[in-house]
Nucleic acid binder design. Structure first.
Lengths: 153, 153
DNA sequence: CCCGTACTGATACGGGGTTGCAATAAGACC
DNA sequence: GGTCTTATTGCAACCCCGTATCAGTACGGG
C-alpha cells in the first residue's frame, strides 16, 4: 500500500479489458487476481481488502487475504487500482476511474459524500494560490461537518 | 485515538498552565502525564507516541508507551492535544493550538508544509460552495504536489 | 496523615498489513 | 500438446500501531 501512485491511472472498462492490461504489464491472470478484479467490478464503491477476500460478503468466491493484498498492491502499481483512506481504519480500494473524486467525511455523523473533480476546480485553484501546492483529493478525505451536522451544531 | 475531537481545542501556554487544566478536568498530574506534556512542549512539531515514549530520542526521560497512549488520548479528549495523520504510519500528536493548521504533504517528495488557517479561508469557502461541507484541515493532510515537484513533473 | 480512586505498568490481545519460502501453475516457446 | 521458466500462490510467521484487562501504586482532597 503505497501512499503515492507510481503510475498514472489506467482505467479499465471490464474484466476483458483488465486482463489485457494485466498481460501488457507482464503479469499473469491467475485465479486470485481475476477474483480481485471481479470483486472490484462488482463492488458498489470503495471496498476493503477484507471485503474482497470474503467475496463481498458471500456474493463471490473467497480469496486468500494475502493474495488480495499482493494483487491490490500490484494492480495499484500498474495504475488499474487506487486506494483511499476515509478514516482511521482499513484502506479502501477501487478501480482507477477516469475522473478524480474527493471524499468528504463528516466528523460528527461519519457520513461520506463523493464529489467529482469538476466541482473542485476552484478549491484546487485556491489552494494553489495560498500555498503553491497542486492538490489531489483522491487519497485522503476532506474532513469536516456535513451541512446537516453543521446546522445542528 | 478518536477521529473527531470531543471537546473544542483548549490551548495551554506552558506546563504550569497545562497542570491547571489537567486538575480542572478532574485529572491528576502524574509523572507519565507530566512527561508527555513536557515532550509535547519540547517537540518541534507533531510527534509520534513512540517518540514521546523514547523521550524524543533521548533528550528527555523515557515513559511507558502504554501510558503515553492513554495520556495522549485523555489529553485529546479534554482538548489539550490534537493528532493528525500525515501518511500511512503512526499518528502525530501536538498541543492544540489556538489556530487551525493545514498540512500539505507532497506525494512525490513527501515534504510537509504547514499552512495556517487565515490562508485557508477562501479554500474553505470554495468547498462550502461546492458541497455544503464545512471543512476542517487539521486532521487529514491535503495531498498533492509541492511547487518544486509540480515543476519537475 | 489517610483514604478513595485515578492512574500505572505488565501482559495479552486486536486490526491491518507484510515477508519468507516451498509448492504451484500461467503462458511463451517449441 | 508437452516443456520449461518464473510469476504467483498459500501457509505461517512476523511487524506496527495501538487497546483492553487487571492487580498494584500514588496523587491529592479531606
Amino acid at each position: 500500500m503505497t501512499v503515492a501512485p507510481r503510475h498514472p491511472p489506467l482505467p479499465v472498462g471490464d474484466l476483458e479489458d483488465a486482463a489485457r492490461v494485466v498481460r501488457e504489464a507482464g503479469g499473469r491472470l491467475t485465479a486470485p487476481r481475476r477474483a480481485v478484479l471481479e470483486a472490484l467490478f462488482a463492488a458498489e464503491g470503495p471496498v476493503t481488502a477484507e471485503q474482497i477476500a470474503d467475496g463481498l460478503g458471500g456474493r463471490l468466491p473467497t480469496t486468500e487475504a494475502v493474495s488480495v493484498y499482493r494483487n491490490l498492491d500490484w494492480l495499484e502499481e500498474i495504475g488499474v487500482v487506487r486506494h483511499v483512506h476515509l478514516g482511521h481504519g482499513a484502506g479502501l480500494y477501487q478501480l482507477a476511474g477516469a475522473a478524480e473524486h474527493a471524499y468528504l467525511v463528516c466528523e460528527r455523523c461519519a457520513g461520506v459524500t463523493r464529489l467529482d473533480a469538476a466541482r473542485l476546480r476552484r478549491v484546487r485553484a485556491e489552494i494553489e494560490k495560498a500555498s503553491g501546492f497542486h492538490a489531489h483529493f483522491d487519497h485522503f478525505p476532506i474532513h469536516g461537518l456535513c451541512p446537516a451536522c453543521a446546522a445542528g451544531a
